[in-house]
């Protein structure tokens, strides 16, 4: 197992530009490399990836970047991505491989883990190195965030994990000039067949892009009817926030499913989450309790959301939201 000595991250791109989650993984990777030793390598798949962005991976702390490129790799398709990643793992033998727990990472890594006979831990929020063994310690929430479990992979390599987006800060460009190797490789043509074809893409509007959002304003059943959504939307606009919803709101048809936060919806971890008229069921908490800051507005002082909040107002959202929106607007001017 001695030839497995590198820490790898799987960087992601969209339209040839490297995504922020990749820089978050560099933060994780550098931290582990400091404890474990070894090089930090970023692997990335795509087509005509921006050269400055690849250099940016070096500037932020990677020692090596391996970019495998082909037209067929422009968008994520599980089979060609998995074959390329498997080829790299088998030829370069990383000891640790981290990917973001995005729709891509959470599809690609479980597929590849089987192909390369490796252990995989999903959606980790804390990563560390075990002193005695050098094994990766992977901590993740389970059962809707009610427990945390620490998991290790003693005998299989690479040790693979997906890491929850926004669970750490993106690595900044380092002050000192760094040298690193960028390998741009054409993807082998025999790896690129796919039984899935991507025929189009329908973007969600900005306010629905919850997983990229740094700020989220979420409404619960307390808004009483769909027409009252404008109160939420006005506040979201002032805060430059995406709009989230509880299951109740989605099931009543007031907002569409891509807005839903919670156990059967999305998990968000924004810098600030503001819940208005949200009671805070266990199922909803599972999707938002790792937010950095939590603000609550609810007329019921017993609402569960107060228990995980940093600051809250006990009052009707119909009274609070117009005033809060106005105060925010004034503060920005």
């Amino acid at each position: 197992m001695h030839d497995h000595n590198n820490i790898w991250i799987l960087a992601e791109q969209r339209d040839g530009r490297v995504l922020r989650v990749s820089h978050e993984l560099i933060t994780r990777g550098r931290d582990l490399a400091a404890k474990r030793g070894g090089e930090l390598t970023a692997a990335i798949f795509g087509n005509a990836i921006d050269a400055a962005d690849l250099q940016g991976l070096i500037d932020r702390g990677c020692d090596r970047v391996i970019a495998m490129e082909a037209e067929a790799l422009e968008h994520f398709l599980v089979e060609p991505f998995a074959r390329c990643l498997q080829r790299l793992i088998e030829s370069r033998k990383p000891e640790i491989l981290l990917a973001a727990a995005t729709t891509t990472g959470r599809t690609l890594l479980p597929y590849v883990a089987i192909k390369v006979n490796a252990g995989l831990t999903a959606d980790c929020t804390v990563l560390d190195i075990e002193d005695e063994t050098g094994n990766l310690l992977q901590t993740r929430p389970a059962i809707g965030g009610n427990i945390l479990a620490t998991i290790k992979t003693p005998n299989h390599r690479p040790q693979m994990a997906t890491v929850r987006p926004r669970s750490t800060k993106p690595a900044p460009v380092l002050a000192e000039r760094r040298s690193g190797v960028i390998e741009r490789l054409p993807a082998p043509a025999d790896l690129l067949d796919s039984r899935i074809t991507r025929t189009g893409f329908e973007p969600l509007d900005e306010t629905t892009r919850l997983e990229d959002a740094d700020r989220v304003v979420c409404c619960g059943r307390g808004i009483k009817k769909g027409e009252n959504l404008s109160l939420i939307e006005d506040l979201a606009e002032q805060l430059d926030a995406a709009v989230g919803a509880t299951r109740d709101v989605v099931d009543r048809g007031w907002l569409s499913y891509p807005h839903q936060i919670g156990l059967s919806g999305k998990t968000v971890a924004p810098a600030v989450y503001l819940g208005a008229g949200v009671s805070g069921s266990i199922q909803h908490l599972a999707g938002m309790q790792t937010a950095e800051t939590i603000i609550v507005i609810n007329s019921d002082p017993e609402a569960q959301l107060f228990r995980v909040a940093d600051i809250g107002i006990v009052a009707s959202l119909f009274d609070v939201l117009p005033v809060l929106t106005k105060t925010l607007r004034a503060a920005k001017e």
Partner: peptide, 14 residues
């Protein structure tokens, strides 16, 4: 391949 080494409750420090 994976082993659970520890289970614990998250601390709510808020």
């Amino acid at each position: 391949p994976t082993r659970v080494v520890k289970i614990f409750r998250p601390s709510v420090a808020r």
